[in-house]
Computed example of a mutant assay.
Amino acid sequence: MDILKKQLKPNWSFSLSILLLLFLLSLCSNAQTNDSTNLTPKKKIDGYQDAVATGLVGDILYKVISREGKSKTYTDLIPLDGGTVGIAHFAVGGLADLYRQMDTEKYFGKSQQEMIANYSSKCRPSGKSGNDNGWGCYSQTWWREGFKKFLASEESKRIQDKVWAMKMKEVIDIAISKGWNSQRQIAIALGIANSRGTSGFIKMADNNSWDAEKTLSTYAKKSDHTKRRKEAIDKFFPK
Rank of each mutant, 00 (worst) to 15 (best):
Y138H: 14
K63V: 06
K72V: 00
R196H: 12
L25G: 11
V171E: 07
P238M: 03
G109S: 06
K148N: 05
E154Y: 10
R100L: 05
C123D: 11
I116W: 11
A51V: 01
N181E: 01
S209V: 06
A51D: 01
I186H: 06
L16V: 12
E155W: 11
F150H: 07
C123W: 01
N30M: 12
D50L: 02
V163H: 11
V64D: 15
I45T: 08
S199L: 03
D132A: 11
G94V: 14
G109E: 07
I233Y: 09
G136C: 09
S139I: 02
S223G: 07
K230Q: 15
A232M: 13
F14S: 14
K149C: 05
T215I: 07
N194Y: 15
D2P: 00
Y138M: 06
Q112H: 08
G82R: 00
K42D: 15
C28S: 15
M168F: 06
D2H: 00
S17C: 10
K221R: 13
I78V: 14
E154T: 09
I65Q: 15
K230Y: 12
T40G: 00
Y107P: 03
I65D: 12
G197K: 06
I192P: 14
K42P: 06
Y119I: 03
L98H: 10
K221G: 06
D224C: 00
T33S: 02
K148Y: 00
P41Y: 09
K110W: 04
E170Y: 05
A165W: 08
T218C: 11
A152W: 03
S29N: 09
W143S: 00
G47K: 10
K148T: 07
G47N: 15
G55I: 01
D46Y: 00
Y48M: 05
W143H: 08
C137K: 03
T215R: 04
D224S: 11
T198I: 04
G191D: 09
F237H: 02
W142T: 11
K178Y: 11
L16H: 05
K227S: 10
I176T: 05
E170D: 07
F108S: 15
G136N: 06
S120I: 05
G130F: 13
A51H: 00
L25F: 14
S126F: 08
N11Y: 02
K63T: 07
S199M: 10
D234V: 04
A175Q: 10
D76Y: 07
D103Q: 14
S139Y: 07
K42Y: 08
S153P: 02
D97Y: 14
Q32P: 00
D76P: 02
D97M: 04
K203V: 06
G93Y: 09
L22E: 09
I159C: 03
G82L: 01
K214C: 02
A175H: 02
I159Y: 09
A91C: 05
S223Q: 05
A212C: 04
D132W: 01
K230M: 13
T141R: 13
G197N: 10
Q113K: 15
T33I: 03
I45L: 07
I78L: 06
A193D: 01
S36E: 12
D173M: 01
L216T: 10
A53L: 01
G134W: 02
C28Y: 14
K227E: 07
I188A: 10
